[in-house]
Design a protein around this nucleic acid. Sequence first.
DNA 1: GATACCACTGTCAGATTCTGGCAGCAGCAT
DNA 2: ATGCTGCTGCCAGAATCTGACAGTGGTATC
Lengths: 236, 236
Amino acid sequence: MSRSERLLDLIQILRRHRRPVSGRTLAGEMSVSIRTLYRDIATLQGQGAPIEGEAGLGYVLKPGFMLPPLMFTDEEIEAIVLGSRWVAKQPDKRLAAAATDALSKIAAVLPDDLREDLDATTLLVGPSSASVEAIDLGVVRQAIRDERKLGFLYSDARGAASERMVWPFALGFFDKVRVMVAWCETRQDFRHFRADRMSHLSATDIRYPRRRQAMLKEWRATLDKPGQKVPKNSAG
Amino acid sequence: MSRSERLLDLIQILRRHRRPVSGRTLAGEMSVSIRTLYRDIATLQGQGAPIEGEAGLGYVLKPGFMLPPLMFTDEEIEAIVLGSRWVAKQPDKRLAAAATDALSKIAAVLPDDLREDLDATTLLVGPSSASVEAIDLGVVRQAIRDERKLGFLYSDARGAASERMVWPFALGFFDKVRVMVAWCETRQDFRHFRADRMSHLSATDIRYPRRRQAMLKEWRATLDKPGQKVPKNSAG
DNA sequence: GATACCACTGTCAGATTCTGGCAGCAGCAT
DNA sequence: ATGCTGCTGCCAGAATCTGACAGTGGTATC
């Protein structure tokens, strides 16, 4: 196995383990000496991979995605840039910042002439007419990623407020509103929550007992029309 | 210089030259023997780079972007995926297909567990309420990329049709409509054209005499409010 | 505090890979 | 036909990678 393949393998192995892994274990999995493993780690860190090693514990890979060299056509890169620009204009500030960062990273590694093209890519996104919500959608996305329960106050269409504890697994982006899809513990059913009607968000440490992919699949099966993923006027 | 750096350099050099370049020249630019160059080319082709070599001519790189290994955070990849999904739902079919292709390419190089995450990434884009236009926006984007003149029929808000020859340099994506921004030869001024009012598109081979980046910059300077990039109701 | 891990660095000889030069074949343009 | 070019196989020397050993300092556990 070539060195470059091994480096990618190393990332994969690290991602499989959520707990810290010792260098000896990693070296064993790749049939390589510890000394070489340390060199590989150093190389990856040099390339920007967020690997952290602590004496007495082991190595952990901070969450993230390593992309190997990749070829995109003109139209594909235009699509990615346009899409990222759209995200950058969304009211979800953290996600918008992430979109900007991703574009910067891509721009940083391109030669000058290509960067110019990208900076001036002539596909523009119009100003967003979306309403602003009071809550931090970043908390919702984090809860979805971690598969943890989420508590909040919800005001339905008639203005009646209620306290909720839900298992969130999806977030829908529409022209004017964002909708969280979750299993509601109170109602014991799937419910949709408009972000602009949510308040007093409280993230918990409690993992919910199901996989978000499974819930997503099940929820999709309950939808009547495959084309219309999330009913716009749904209330929790 | 390490081999991997050299491979990236090779791509950059190839992109600088639009005409075919001989292997001897490339080898010279990188201070490397021609034998090594052939091996480098083979390696790049093996990684999917669209390099074509023809005996008696030289090498040409088909248009495209080569991304080196890159680290993205969870939120950054979420932003890219969400943005690409939004693009994939746009009525511009070619661009939508490109967005899907780009996502496939990214998914293809990820280990299984990450691909699952990406497939089931829990950020959804609602159905697009955008109107469908009769013309192929791909033609417009190609004309912008190539900086070539574009002819078409335009019906303004009052229904009056007129024939136009323009220098297109930007395309705006709004919730419900797409707007082409161009220099109009007839009016001798910048004009905005709603895509759903355009018809009988005819791409030409004639390059217009200005750089699209320069026109974009100048057009931006003419806008009163920086936040509102393209007036929605503008007619050509 | 003693102990056991563990991350991390330096060194060096042997294994591995990369590189350049050479020879040879085939396709393209003039 | 001639010259240029892409492309492949081969081989010896150069460069790099690898494994083993030794040593330093940090962390958790008993």
